[in-house]
Every structure is written in C-alpha cells, then in structure tokens.
Amino acid sequence: MDGRRWNELRRFQCRINTHPNSADGSSFVEQGNSKVVCIVEGPMEPPSRSQLSATEATLNISLNVTPFSSIDRKRRNKNERRIQEIITSLKRTFEQSIITDKYPRTTISITCHVLTLDGGLISAVTNSITLALIDAGIAMYDYISSVSAGFYDNTPLLDLNQLEENDLSYLTIGIVGKSEKLALLILENKIPLDKLEGVLAIAVAGGHRIRDMMDKEVRRHGELRLSKLANK
C-alpha cells in the first residue's frame, strides 16, 4: 500500500473545458498518477448516413492509450481486444445515461487520451467522459462517477493503483449520481460472493465522493462562465 487507508481515494483532480476552441466539450481528470484527457464533439450530423438512427443519438467512443503512458514504452493497437471491450462497455453505460432521444439523427463523438496510466483506467476514463459531456452541454440524467475497488486479505481496498491492480482481484463500478444505482460494473477476476458486498459498499461510497468533487468543479466552472457573461 502507498500510505492510504483502506477507504481513502487517491488524489483526484479534474478540470473541464480544457480545450474550449477545439471541441464542444473537454475535460482533464487526474486520479493518482492516471491522467486522462477527454474531448467530446457533437451532437452533430453523422459523417455517413449508415450510422444514423431516426430516434436517438449514436455514440462514437475512441480510446487512445498513449505508448508512453505505462512502465514500458509500448505502442498499442487501436483495435486491441481489451481496448475494444472497454469501449463497448463504456458505450453501453453512456447510452443509458445520456438522454439520447433528445438528439435524433446525430452522433456524439467522444475521444479519450490516456496520458499516464497508474491503475483505474476505466474509472478515470468514465469520469472524464462524464465531465466532458457536461461541458458539451449534452443532456444527461445524472453524473456517472466511477471508481475501482479490490479485495485483499479480508480487507476491501478502494481506488487501486497499478501495482495493486496487478496483484489483486478488483472491480470497477460506475454510479449514477447520488443514488446507489450502478450504470457500470466490471469484474474481470474472482471475488468471493460473500465478500462482494463489502467491496461494493466502499466503492459506492468512494463514487459518491468523486461525484462531489466533480460537481464542485462543474459549479466552479459554471460560476466562472456566469461572471464572464455578467461582465460583458
């Protein structure tokens, strides 16, 4: 462990509207040493007609894990299975939480760049997408805040770093707002059923804390915008 208590998050910092000129919505999330930039474009007319859906918006997510992000410099293929899996599950999550039928015949394209990676890949990406979507002004039901939690020697642990992820079995959840509804639950290895409850409980608590921090940042940014408007 790195000096945190079992139920403490890593350092969490976020910024929204980081790229005001190049995108409709953008965000930057730092969870411990994992850093993710997310850019949202849209809702816009889709590049090809085939992707179009008459009733709701289509989501396009791309995830770029930069070669310099992890311990060894390694170029990752965009079509790598693992990345594709993550993208699929992210897509499902956000299709449910964006009010997609508000934007028929459009696409929303989401691009994430992972700058450094130190565990919690999915959770950092999810959080950054939430923030960028908010920044883009896309209607959502609520925040999706995500965090990982693992299980070691009868103790549940929150927000694992890379070292811990390698050794422990862990799950990542995405929580809808302040509720206890899960929009995302990924568990790639085994956690005994009777211990799962405890792990989920701390993950939910951690998710709520992250939501608060994201909310604070959104409000800070909103006030900044307002004051700018007022000054005009």
Partner: peptide
Amino acid sequence: SKVFVRSRNGNASKIVREHYLR
C-alpha cells in the same frame, strides 16, 4: 510522486510510484 527511470535489457522503463504522506 517519484519517478525512477531504469534501463533493463536496453529498454527504458519508467516506474512511477505515488506515496501519500499524512
């Protein structure tokens, strides 16, 4: 945050550790 850069079999690997003080 500590950054070690050490080379192992020729390649550079970067080890980043976080360390929380309280």
